[in-house]
Structures are given as C-alpha cells and as structure tokens.
Design a protein around this nucleic acid. Structure first.
Lengths: 245, 245
DNA sequence: AAGTGGTCTAGACCACCGA
DNA sequence: CGGTGGTCTAGACCACTTA
C-alpha cells in the first residue's frame, strides 16, 4: 500500500476518478454514500469527504444534499485559463501611460458603426479621440477612439484628470460593474492621418484592437478602437492548465 | 448571535475578512494560529480551517505549512478570466482546417532563434514549414513555422496524417502534458516570399503570432510562428468577471 | 526543538430531499 | 419517514519551516 506517497484522500480521489473514467460509475449515476465509501475503504467519513471535494473541484461530480453525489463527467475538462487581475491589464504596458484627449464628439450610429458596436441604427454615442503616451515620453503608443454610452457621458469631466483607464471610470463613477470584456485583433496598415498622429510612417503595419466592455445583462457600456503601430507594443497572453496534477 | 443564518465557518470567514479589510490583520502579517483562533472564537480547529479555506479560495491569504497563514490582500481581487477547453481553440477557426507540410529541416539556434525560443545557443530544433488551409479551400489561412524539441521528432511520422493540431501530437504521442501556452501578437508586413505562399500581396498587413508550449517544469516543448494575412482571420478573446465570493 | 499548517479519526447532530 | 450530504467536535499524529 503506497500510503507514503500522497494523502489518503488524494489516493481515494484518484481511485474514484479512475472508476468514473472506466465507467464503473457511469455519468448520471450516484456514487455510493459517503458512509459506505468510508467503510469500504477503511477511512473516516471526513477523509472521504476530502476526496470527494477534490472530484467536485475537478467538475467530475455534483453533490446534492438529500440526494447524493452524482457523476457529471468521465474526465475533467482540461481547461486552459488566462487570468487578469484588472481589465486594465489587457493593455500590458510595462510602463505607466497617460491619455491625451484630442477631441470629443457625439456620433450617431450609421450602418458601419452600428455593426461595430452591435447597437441599433441611430444610437447616439459619445466619442473621444485620444492618444496614449508613456508618462515620460513623447512618442505615442497608440491611437484610440473611445465610445461611451450616453448615460455615462459624465466621465467627460474625469477623463483628463486621471491618466489611467477610461472604461474603469464607468465602474468607479457609476458603480456599474464591467462583467465581460471582449477583445478582437486584426492587422491593418496605418493610414496617413493616424500615422501622423502616431509619428509613424503611413503604410506601416499596425494592430487594430477593438475592445468591448459589457455590464449586467450583456449591455455594452463602452468600447474602444485602438491602433498600435509596430515595435511599440506586443500583445501577450498566457494560458495555464487549470488542474495541473 | 445570528447563528441561524449561516454556518459558523462562514461567520468566522466573514469576521476574518472584515478584519483583514480593516487592516487589523495587515497585508504581509500572519493570522493567529489555527489553534488560537479556535480557542478565541470557541469553535473546533476543523471549523476554523473550513473558514480559512474560504479566505484562501478568495485569495485573501496564503497558507504555508510550518510558517503560518499570511495575509496577501485586503480585498478579494476581482479577477477576469478567459477560458479555453482545448489549446487548439487558440486558433478559433470557424471552419475545419488542414495542415500542409512544405518542408522540414534541422536548425541550430543562432542568436536570433535562441532569443526567440528562449533556449541556449546551438540548441537543435526540428523545424517544419507549413501552410494551413480550410479543408474545402485553396487559399491558405496562415503560414506557419513549427519548432519541435528533438526528443519529439517522432511526430514527423504523424504530422501529415492528422489534419489537426501539431502540438497536441506531443501530448498524445509522448504523454507529455502541455501545462502552459503563451501567445504573442505583433503586426508585420508580408514579405514577398510569404505573400506568394499565402496568395496575398507583398506589403499587405498581417498578424505575426508566436506561440510557445510548455510542459512540466516550464520546459519548452514546441513553438510556432504563424503569419495570418488580413481579412482571413481574427483573434478574439473574451474575459469574464470571476465571482470570488 | 518548537510551532505551524496538513491529515485523519470516531463520533454527533442538522438540513434537505424524495418516497 | 429514512437516507443523503452539511456542519461540527475533541481529540491525535505527521510534515514542514524556522531558529
């Protein structure tokens, strides 16, 4: 008995996971009650529960009080996850940056903008034209158009005060939590006017990154369209296996 | 005493979380030992441990055997996560694709390649030159250079048999789990020779996506360098707020 | 060597669910 | 109502870190 290697609850968890995978405990069926398992494997119920907790963490089983422990899946989904502590980490700037607002205007969604923002035709948006600079530099990192839902136009007052993260203002000023963010990346060439703003060459390669920020009920709160010229920025994402075992 | 409302471990977890937030247990300090807490709050150590487990799940504390329970943060971080069920989902091809291998060669890492692959100078790699096509089309989606660690050169036999995912072959053929993957995205212009392969125009914008696949102990198993011309591919990632509660 | 968290036991009672 | 998982106790010993 290789009791030295790992805790008994882990050994039991492994055994049960194998039995689930082998089909001895089919998906949809119930595992034996905890007391039965305890007797069967000669350990206390507490240890059995610790083992079963592992299986639950892996998503293999579902525990329901008064019913039993139901098998949900034969194998743990090998999920790879990437995590951010703040959505502003999407930017991944190694250095601090500041935002310079070059203009703002109200826009009415035409067909193209409505498609881009997934809104109805004629929807009004407050649009900011901005450039993002390193705090200590004069070469912009990005040209950014920011679209804000009219309800939140009040952030206009704040947008130049804080160097940080525009979309986060909606969270802090209006208490509207950002639930989801989507990021879309495509390659583009710099147009002459944006190239001039960015002090880069027209026709140089760039990343177009569109970000959409959603609140409760999937409502789009704000959106941005970012142009990053080459060499100044790299988008990097790490994915980790969730249950490294 | 609102003992009816929630389990005692939850009540204790709430109390401790408040104390951490208030600064009574500052970040970096150690919580009292479990036995002390048990006596102080008049409950068993098991219940205390259940409470502390909650705090650990929220990321507020770090438990270290032989040391103690260290306070890590005053508030649970609002974490945003993106999840993939398979690393091949990184590709996000809406349609099925096939891989066409156009050539293979052994390469010795010079300074540039060593930097790219984070390996030592002189390291040997097996390099495949490939294009990825939709199964029903003749226009390639991407030009891809694949680097494989010599130990896994056996996948050479398989690479043309399966249309699927090259790096996954290492998992299935060698039982070497991919623990982590990193993706780096930069804008580039198509060079003349790659443009020809991709049936696109030289000088057109493209995404250069470098992916690194790591196994146990952070060892690089394989890597790829992908060139996606505009319009044929869009990289999209969704981040969701994870409810730490 | 002392003290910490990690594991484990053998009990007990409670809350919930379905027949 | 009986049986399930959920909570909880009062012990015990082990593994690990630090001094």
């Amino acid at each position: 008995m290789p009791s030295s290697s790992s805790p008994r609850y882990q050994q039991l968890a492994d055994v049960l996971a194998r039995h689930i995978e082998s089909g001895r405990y089919p998906v949809g069926s119930l595992l034996p009650p905890e007391t039965d398992l305890a007797q069967q494997y000669g350990m206390s119920r507490h240890t059995v529960r610790e083992a079963i907790r592992r299986l639950a963490d892996m998503g293999l089983i579902l525990r329901r009080q008064g019913v039993g422990t139901e098998v949900r899946a034969r194998q743990p989904e090998s999920r790879y996850v990437a995590a951010l502590n703040t959505l502003s980490d999407l930017f991944q700037y190694t250095q601090r940056t500041k935002l310079k607002v070059m203009g703002e205007e109200w826009v009415i969604a035409d067909a193209e903008l409505a498609a881009q923002l997934h809104c109805e035709l004629g929807q009004r948006w407050l649009k900011f034209l901005t450039c993002r600079y390193p705090t200590d530099g004069k070469i912009p990192i990005a040209y950014t158009e920011i679209f804000v839902y009219p309800m939140y136009e009040g952030i206009r007052e704040q947008i130049n005060n804080r160097s940080a993260w525009v979309h986060g203002l909606i969270e802090s000023e209006y208490g509207e939590k950002i639930i989801e963010a989507r990021q879309e990346i495509e390659p583009v060439l710099l147009s002459a006017d944006i190239a001039k703003l960015l002090r880069a060459s027209a026709g140089a390669p760039a990343l177009q990154v569109r970000r959409y920020y959603f609140g409760a009920h999937g409502r789009l709160l704000s959106s941005s369209n970012n142009i990053y010229p080459e060499k100044r920025f790299k988008i990097s994402t790490s994915w980790r296996l969730e249950w490294a075992k």
